[in-house]
Design a protein around this nucleic acid. Sequence first.
RNA 1: GGAAGGGUGGGUGAGUGGCUUAAACCAGCGGUUUGCUAAACCGUCGUAGGAUGUCAAGUCCUACCGGGGGUUCGAAUCCCCCCCCUUCCGCCA
Length: 425
Amino acid sequence: MHDIRFIREKPAFFDKALARRGLGSVALQLAELDQRRRAAQTAFQEMQAKRNEASRQIGEVKKQGGDAAAQLAEVAALKEALGTAEIQEKALGKEIDDLLMGIPNLPADDVPDGKDETANVELRRNGKPPVFSFAPLEHDAIGERLGLMDFGAAAKLSGARFVVLKGALARLERALAAFMLDLHTGENGYTEINPPFLVRDEALFGTGQLPKFGEDLFRANTGHWLIPTAEVPLTNLVQGEIVDEAQLPLRMTALTPCFRSEAGAAGRDTRGMIRQHQFSKVELVSIAHPDASAAEHERMTACAEMVLQRLGLPYRVMALCCGDMGFSAMKTYDIEVWLPGQNCYREISSCSNCGDFQARRMNARFRGAGDKGTRFVHTLNGSGLAVGRTLVAILENYQQSDGAVLVPEALRPYMGGLDRIVPHV
RNA sequence: GGAAGGGUGGGUGAGUGGCUUAAACCAGCGGUUUGCUAAACCGUCGUAGGAUGUCAAGUCCUACCGGGGGUUCGAAUCCCCCCCCUUCCGCCA
């Protein structure tokens, strides 16, 4: 959500930034609506002032037993105009809000230009893709050969885009999640949170999924929404709050299932575990001081990278261009993991600094010691990491010619000491 | 699901139609006093929007007591709907 005053004061700057996202100009239209709204408001308020004064007189006259007919007539004359003025002012306000709510965050200055993922900029690589003496398989073939990944069974239960994991692969999923949480809570300073997976409209509005992207979500018959990411409950923990400046940054992590309807993704990644209606993810969220959010963004990305380093998975870090960023982000880094079976890098984490965009929607503020007023916090979120896709990466990078899959050293304590997963008989 | 009680500024909490311009206290901020600290005393202290003004200071106005609607000349206060919290009952892992 943008500040209408900012748009009013710097319309050219605002439109220029939106143009980098490939969007047309709206600032002049908004400024014009805003001016009409303020004029309507002034007219309305002047009438209210008159009415209040007359009402006050009525009270006085009546108390002294007099006849207040003149004042009553004055108020009656005002009544109709007052009603229409109020309606007009509210209608203009709603028109402005509806427009504002649909406008994405402005990209930060250092975000690369470009309209789609082909313009993203690679920042760094880590780890070398493994060399195989055989043609590496994709993860679903590996999982099915192990007898521990069953898409047919999942289809029977739930339809397409679901999976059933069994035995060592089910445990591997659990091990990965536990490993990530231990790393982020034990070494990276995040507090573990176990949030609700069903949330109200307000929470999704705060983080920016609503009102525009309801199509991508699942909704329960109670009106609750299934969370598409733990970003929603974690970030909304500060909704409506005034945090002490000394407590910033708040760093939170959570393991949750994520539910996405994948509307509009028909035909994309239909095979395998890459794109599912349900997956688990360890999420990182920071509530930061505005002056510290850029550094926090780098730190968060490094925390996510650390997971891949410990697991020995090759990856690269991409700076998303303006056109490829999500609605609420002012700057985003994607981490892409190497998948030998697909012979390409695939997104496994996305770390975004949302600036004050979500904070404004949520009314999340902080106050410095002794400060009179409050300021909006900055919010950041990142995957640390998507558990399902990490499992995919392990299967593909650690596959052996005999059909077994090695367990990365870091995970062995979480796997009861198991060092390799072998085909199930 | 049933019943009852609640939701008021940063916090506690008073307020049953005009005396509220939301009391009081706490916290905060400024000051006085003071070897230091503490205490005491005095002052100040909500948010948003608008008008005016030199993009200032200031002055004035409006709205805001969980959200929305209604009654009324006038609503924190009365009525209706919704949300949330607490307690009890029922059901339940």
